[in-house]
Design a protein around this nucleic acid. Structure first.
Lengths: 207, 207
DNA sequence: CACTCTACCAAATGGTTGTTAGAAAGAATG
DNA sequence: CATTCTTTCTAACAACCATTTGGTAGAGTG
């Protein structure tokens, strides 16, 4: 490769790194203050620069959340695909999906918080149509998994399928609101306990 | 009572009614758009009046959420007090609390959504200190109930107490995001299914 | 009919927002 | 050392925000 080429690659890589850095702090501010409530100047403050300077790196405030959310979703779906491709039984698939979800929270905590709080609002706009797509895909994945599990005799047949789906979906993701990396419980610890609760219940009685 | 007295009561009642009416539409807009993202003009639009006119009834946008949230919390705690005063066993108390929570969602759905999405942000300000108090009280109530239940042998001892608390807290309230009055499942139906899942789990196996 | 009171409207206020354009600082390059 | 390129700053912009002020239509009251 020519020197010109190497330089171009070097600066492109540096630029991408700075971009990711700024995006990470933006995600944290969005997550803690709420997207609509945070000003571009607050994000710039957290990044140690002035408001206008952010526009050298990003087109708009909207494009920042866009990149935060789509990066997270791409990563999440990649890990889901791996699980689904393994061809496990319904219960094992469910366990693996829950573990993958908590690891996703571990890697993208601010993005998950933003996704939870703002996706409903953002999804209304054209630009964030992929949020609606992801949501639909997520729902179909779980509903069919639960149906398969019930047919296989792994899950109780006396529960409302839609309710169970929402239950799992919600319980998995809300944890992002209080989870912190390096805390008392690791993401895998939490996944294990969550699975114990959801699968076997918190009751001591076995009737 | 004198006629003057009766008139004063009449207009005071009418005023309170209008207030509650406006507050209900404000709560709905806040819940669907997010508090920070909704403008006072949007609320006024939904109420069929102009932005400035709302200030005849309310001091500020902040005082609107304030009234919405405190009304909900007062009602919720009143129903919790009733349950706690009944002196039931740990498991029965838990069941009654969950049922009371879902009935609370049924009565104050928009308020619950607002509480979920915005309380963390609002609680930072002096005015909404009661949100922090309520949260602390809620946590103490559940933690001690779970401890009692574990001591009584009603709940599994192998789960992390703090995790179970958050699990229950979250699963109970997120339902406000999709619940709709008069839907396929009543609030009591949902409470029953949620309790079945949380207490006994969704797994078919009983090992 | 005169008067008052309630509930709203019309129009403006100061402040904040996202965003832009042009200058400048500094490192990299020749 | 001169030049270029990258990144930031300075200083604005129009749009929009919550809120205020003063007016007014209309119902209720005497």
């Amino acid at each position: 490769m020519s020197p010109r080429r190497r330089d171009a690659e070097g600066t492109a890589a540096a630029r991408a790194e700075r971009r990711a850095e700024l995006l990470a702090t933006a995600a944290e501010v969005f997550a803690s203050q709420g997207y609509a409530a945070t000003t571009i100047r607050q994000v710039a403050d957290a990044a140690g620069m002035l408001g206008g300077s952010l526009y050298y790196h990003f087109d708009s405030k909207e494009s920042m959340v866009d990149e935060v959310l789509s990066t997270f979703l791409d990563d999440m779906w990649a890990s889901y695909e791996e699980v689904l491709a393994a061809g496990l039984g319904a219960r094992e698939t469910m366990e693996a999906l829950v573990v993958a979800s908590f690891r996703s929270i571990d890697r993208h905590r601010p993005a998950v918080v933003i996704y939870q709080n703002e996706s409903k609002l953002l999804a209304a706009s054209e630009r964030f149509g992929y949020l609606r797509d992801s949501h639909r895909r997520f729902q179909e994945m779980w509903i069919s998994l639960l149906a398969r599990g019930t047919a296989e005799g792994a899950f109780r047949p006396d529960l409302d399928a839609g309710l169970v789906y929402r239950f799992i979906r919600d319980t998995v993701w809300v944890a992002a609101n209080w989870y912190q990396r390096g805390g008392r419980l690791s993401a895998d610890d939490i996944a294990k306990q969550y699975l114990a609760m959801v699968l076997e219940g918190i009751s001591a009685s076995r009737d």
